[in-house]
Nucleic acid binder design. Sequence first.
RNA 1: AGACCCAUGGUGUAAUUGGCAACACAACAGAUUUUGGUUCUGUCGUUCAAGGUUCGAGUCCUUGUGGGUCUACCA
Length: 552
Amino acid sequence: MSTPTADNFIEEFIVTDLENGKHDGRIHTRFPPEPNGYLHIGHAKAIVINFEIGKKFGGKTNLRMDDTNPTTEETHFVTNIENDIRWLGYEWEGETLYASNYFGELYQLALRLIDKGLAFVDDSTAEEIAAQKGDIDEPGTNSPFRDRTPAENRDLFERMKAGEFPDGSKVLRAKIDMAHPNLLLRDPVLYRIKHEAHHRTGDEWCIYPLYDFAHGQSDSIEGITHSLCSLEFRHHRDLYNWLIEALGIFPSRQIEFARMNVDYLITSKRRLKKLVEEGIVAGWDDPRMGTLAGMRRKGYPPAALRDFCLRTGVTKRDNQQEFGLLEHSVREVLNETADRYMAVLDPVKLVITNYPAGQSEILTAENNPQDESRGEREIPFSRELWVERSDYRKEPQNRKYFRMAPDKDVRLKAAYILHIEGHEEDADGNVTQINATYYPDSRSGNDTSGIKAKGTLHWVDAATAIDLEVRQYDKLFTDPTPMDHEDKDFMDFINPDSLKIITAKGEPALAQAKVGDTFQFLRMGYYTVDPDATEDKMVFNLTCGLKSSWKG
RNA sequence: AGACCCAUGGUGUAAUUGGCAACACAACAGAUUUUGGUUCUGUCGUUCAAGGUUCGAGUCCUUGUGGGUCUACCA
């Protein structure tokens, strides 16, 4: 089998490694979230990169919870993360792994470092350590505890583990170089004391490794060949490699790529949390949120998200993806998969004056013009219908206008051609009813009328229509990059009209829809059944509108 | 300001590693269409700057400029 061709700079590294026979041609990646929050679109990118590379090069991909901070981590986040990844369409190698699985091994590695004289126990306070760090253009100063002997350090560290010291009283630090240009290498803290229960190890430990003494070591323990992370970890790589060298452990290779930013979506956990806590959104799974749970609830198909992440590429450049590309991916999938139904979002009554009262008939309509195998469905039709208010104009219009107006001919989808006569209105000039006549010989499928109607409109039979609660979601912010304003807070850009709840009229077959089903409401957009739907009340969320080339 | 990273159309990503700057999205125009959807066709427009190396530079070198990251007992 020949090596696949590289599609980006990370894959180029991998291809080179493969060609050189590194790690016997083994490729192993991992997705390492901290279980302290919900996954969002940025995580989706990292998931796609890691899993797709694993797949493409015949490798494996682990799921590892980076759970080294007991203060912030909870088990229910783990379950959530697992669900989101599976929903996105990926299955990891074996069991879910945890950095906390390795606390014992990590402790032994720390001892090894101490014995080699490369780590020391420091009694300095956090403030003192910060002061010792120096500055970007000023070298740091050595800790007064830096020269303790390995024996003394080992004793102290063992007693830290035994719980002899209170939180904050001591830390374990690597002994590197307090004048190093990379601040991370100025004797970084490796272990801290936290008398706190961990979501998995309980009270077994009172010392916990920091990221830099857990992540890379976990990579090594798992035999991860390529440890892919975002650009902000670039400076950590020097420490990552220093520790591999010092410890003599499996040399995983860290490669950094640029995070993906998407217009109108924020990925900052703190800010997402604020939106939830201040009631700006209904929860972490609100369809307006950039969380995977939110996008799922909004009706975005996982295939669309994967496609989006793939087509935005992998580079080291700061990037800002247009929201339109995300929606393009969503529409591309839904156009093929979503059945078409009719629903009238802003209904106004239309009466066919020459259609006999009390008469009705059953018409058939294709479910999906892109896919004949989706079959047809039946739609009731009678004298009184609901049509879209915005499809009617009170004054006669020119030929560039295809919809309803006095004296216009329009086609009702899957039904007849109508001749619009006029309307009735209330004292305020609001249209209360549209009157029309129909051409009995213009029925869809056997139209012998010879009449050409340019416009085809959606409609619902009034007698059999069901009410639908429709949640019309719009962008949460009025600015594509609400965080990028130095003089303003992102909260200043909250869109006050990001959700409008309306009652629409839908064709009766819609009553059978199940949570998560996504449809195209003909001419209006894609809509998905919300979990709030009940037997008595259907609830639909707007997934994404349709493109429109009409400038009306 | 020290160190590190980055710079190609409106957006994002390519360019056989020094050889005609391409693709997607967006926008615009037209054709098709029982969704003003889909599909099809066309148009639009780019190598941050200045030097240098070279027959030839988006690619290599130098110097600028612009943007990003780093000074948590978070990850």
